[in-house]
Each structure stands twice: as C-alpha cells, then as structure tokens.
Nucleic acid binder design. Sequence first.
DNA 1: GCCATGCCGATCATTATCGCACATCATATC
DNA 2: GATATGATGTGCGATAATGATCGGCATGGC
Lengths: 301, 301
Amino acid sequence: MIGMADWDDLRYVLETVRHAGLSGAARALKVNHATVSRRIAAAERAMGARLFDRAPGGYRPTDAGLEAARAAERMESVSHDLSRSLSARDQQLSGALTITAPQLIVERVLAPILRDFKQQYPAIELKMIAANRQLNLAAHEADVAFRISDTPGDTLVGRRVTEQSAGVYVGKEQAARLRADPKLPLDWIRFAHWPGPPEVLKEAWPDRRITLTVDDMYAALAAVRANMGATRIPCFLGDSEPDMERLARVPLLPYRPIWVLTHADLRNTRKVTTFTEFAATRINGLRPLFEGRNPSLALSL
Amino acid sequence: MIGMADWDDLRYVLETVRHAGLSGAARALKVNHATVSRRIAAAERAMGARLFDRAPGGYRPTDAGLEAARAAERMESVSHDLSRSLSARDQQLSGALTITAPQLIVERVLAPILRDFKQQYPAIELKMIAANRQLNLAAHEADVAFRISDTPGDTLVGRRVTEQSAGVYVGKEQAARLRADPKLPLDWIRFAHWPGPPEVLKEAWPDRRITLTVDDMYAALAAVRANMGATRIPCFLGDSEPDMERLARVPLLPYRPIWVLTHADLRNTRKVTTFTEFAATRINGLRPLFEGRNPSLALSL
DNA sequence: GCCATGCCGATCATTATCGCACATCATATC
DNA sequence: GATATGATGTGCGATAATGATCGGCATGGC
C-alpha cells in the first residue's frame, strides 16, 4: 500500500490548513503544537510529498497540502454523518443529550426548564453549552440548539417556540430623574454592529445622546442597571430585572423569535423530540412574557 | 463535539468487520490483536454505542458497527483517492514506483527488464510485488500491474503488450519414452478449476490418463520436469525450460494475452508512462517467444 | 528603538500505547 | 472423551508518542 498510514494525521493537516499554522491547529485539536508538527511530518513522510511551506509566521499549504485538506474535509464530513447517524439510532431515553443556547436564554429561561427535564428523565445526561457562538449542528457539536433569529438556516429543522417583543428599558433611578425633569435628554446605550435607536423613539424622546457603546447584552444590562441610560432589550430580559423598567411613552418593538432547532438526521429520535416538546411546551407557557404582554410572569422565573 | 475522537479507530473497526474477528483484523493491520481490541473499545466509548457482539469464535458487528464500517469504507475510498491523486501530481522520475505481476512473469520475464530499467532510472525506487493475487490498483496497492487476461477489467487503463500462445509440453525423458513406444497412453497433468485437455489433443493422442491435478503453474512445471506427464503451458515458460519440450504432433494453442495496466488517475504521470513504455518495448521484442514462434529466444532471458 | 506578543523548532521528562507472553474458552477432529 | 487448533482477554515491561519548557525569530505597537 502506498499512502496514508494513519487517517488521523489528516485531521492535523486539515486543522493546520484551516488555522494557517501549528499553534492554531494545536489549540483546535487540544494538543501541544509539537504534536501537530510531528504528525504533519509523519503525514508528509507517508504521502511522500511536502504539504506545507514553512513560512515565517505560519504554515502555508502547498498544492498537495490543499488536496490532502480537501480529502480530510470529506472524511470529516463522513465522520460527522456517522456521528449523527449513530445518535439517531439510539432511541433510548438515556445517554448524552447536548443542548446549546445563547447565554442569556440559558440563564434566564432554560435553567429551570432543564432542571425539571432532568428530574423527569434522570437517565438522560444533559450537557448545556451556553455560547453566543452558533455551534455547528451538522458537525454534531450539539444535538439541539436554541436560536434567536428570523431565519434559522435552511439545513436545520425545528420550530418557532415563541415570538418576541422588545422594549426600551431604563434603570429605576434614571427613570425617576426623567420623570422629575421631562426636559432631560435621553442617554442611549448603543449596540455595536446594530442600527441606532428605533424610529418610534424619536417622537417621544427627540433629544438623545449616546453615552456608551456595547457589543454584548450582558454589558448592556449592566449599563442600564447602573443608570447609564436606556436601550432596546427583549422583554423577557427587561421585565425580569427588578432594577429597571420600561421607558415611558415608548411602545413595544418587534424582536426576533426564538427557535428550537435540530439536524434533520436527529429530528425523529426519541430523546430529541422528547426534549424539544418539553422545552417548547414550557416556553409556550411563558409566551406573554416573551411578547411583553405580562411582565409579572418574569417573577416566576 | 459528540463522536469520533480518532479517525484511525475506524480503520480498526472496518478491518474487524471485514475479517469478522480481532485476529484477522490484527493480521491485516500488522498489529497485535490486543491493540485491535483496545482500539475498538476506544471507538465504542467515543461513539457511545456497542459496535460488535463478542460471539464465541469471532466478533459480529452490530447494526451500529455495520454503519461505522460503511463510514470507514467511504473514508478509505477518500484516502485511496488522495493517495493516487498525490502520486499523479508527482512528475519526477524519482521516488517510489510499485509494480505487481504474476510470480512467473516476474521470474522469467520481468527480472532483467526491471534490472535494466533501474540502471537507466536509478532515482526511481522500484518495488515489485510478485503475487498471483490480483492487487487492487484502485486501493493503490500498486501503481502498475501486469495481468494475463482477456478482459483486464473496466476500471483500469493500459494496453496489451503481447499476444500469447501455449503449447503442450512434456519432460525430455518422457518424450523419449513416447517416441520409443507410440502406443503409450499420454499422462496428463490437469489444472484444477480448469477445463480438461484441449480438444486438438484428442486427434494426436486419443489415449490419455490424468496423473496429477495441480492448482499452480509452478507445481505443473515441476511435475512436467519430473516426467510425470504433459500439460498446457504458455510458450514463454515451456520454451525456456531446458528439461522439457513441446509434445509431438500438437499445434500451438491460443492463450490469454499479457496486459500492462494502471489506474486512470496515474495514466499520465511521467514515472508510470516511462515505465510502461520501457517494459512494453522490451516485451514487444520478445513477441516471438510469447507467441511460440521462436523458442530460441527463451535462451536469451 | 524597545518591548510585548505570537509562532515555530528543539530538547527532555512523562505518559500512554503497544507487543509479548500466558491464561482461558470454544470448536473441530480423531 | 482427549487433544489440537485458533480465537479472545489480561498483566507487565519496552517503546513510542506526547506535553512542558526554553530559545530564536519574526511582527506590530508605543
């Protein structure tokens, strides 16, 4: 046989191409960079071809390296297919079930739901990945994902578990100051990579100034809580914060709905459907909260 | 990530499925059977599924195991594609070149040709696999194959390097006995899995008896040399044996031609075309020998 | 111009993996 | 029923792979 000795070496080649270097690949593979270097050397020996140009500041793949990486990608996709397919085969209500959701959804909404699910199905080992990064369900990084989105992608299947509304919220103290002196300008907390304040705000609060730019909802919440200003926040969050309230004279704003999604391969597995049904039912019970129609529900969270 | 930790484990699963047991897989992979056992255990742990039923006398794959093996087959095919593709990229007249041919072709025909090729292209590291088994060129077990066949398979490309004829040969001593007493019956050496003596033999030698059945050309040659009888042998072999001669009053018989073949991916690589041209030219010079038209050529081998 | 940062190569101690040898079990054969 | 054969499981020592660390060399910011 002429060729690969160890298929796993191709993973090292692939990650090194993807990260254009040993260090990045090493981090992705959770190994020491020396190991990546050795495995690549082994692959080059086995295939009898240079796969990378050792350039200063990184590895640049040769044509042969790119070809090897393409093959590795195909193998990776086979491996992912297998992984999902084996999961789909497992129709027991036991074993691992990996969920991912945006951090705030986990903290404010999912935590009690997961607790109750675990109580009802103790044999299922829940793993929760709270991340703002969108995990790759095709790569089987998770079985189920919660997403806040209008268009949750065409490769996944799932359903809207609820519509959402947002409001403009402001710290209690700040709200009191604004009530005392309606002439005060409105301090606005801007989201980076986001259009400015909503149009409807201009009518009630024509005079505004930006006090802070944030790129993260946690930072925005903290800033509002610290009375630095007002900003647009989904109702389920704003209404569950005791230190803030809706800004006067501002209507509810539309917000992206919440989806629960899974890969098509897993849509009919018992574990996944059991979980998604359970979570969807519970979240459905909170619809008024998400749609901003019943702030008091927030207390029950 | 849920799934495979080490792609190479899938090779172990695949070979274990193919050989229906640890021992066979271990031989195929050239490792200890304990290693196969451990890698399979690791794969089962990683995938969270039993892949084999440990049955007495072997491993029987579960459904999940079969599915893993199917995935492994796809990965294997990707690996083979890559291997050939990287070889095809190499247009140097150096590095490895693996040839396979039936043992007798190697011994009687190819040996001097390879010697001269090596002398002319010393940078090419020739590897010769003399095997009666037909190696899998798609799996890149070799770059070039010599085959004796009417139909060398549709997936490979190549050319007939020569037609062949066969003769009926008999040991010199036996031949003398037959000449002395034309009434003697003809001892015939039969090939297993092969039709009996050729029809044309009946005219000249109506009285025959089978003395031995063999399944291998080497065994047949030895038997003829030991004067156990006559049999059908390709001319290039029979005419190069000093201890045997063609049986009187028997015409030449048709025989399957010799092909030199390669995988389509490799057909345009310099190393492969250089070699096949070289070998084809040399073998073409021996055409009279292969076609039984000039027995004296055999001496020059 | 200097320092900080990140990347790669090399060396060495540590760890994990593998092969070997032996035990066990099942099957086939006489 | 006894023996031989071939297969899998297990413990231990040798070996090969890995991780940690340091040094050299670039690049980019102050």
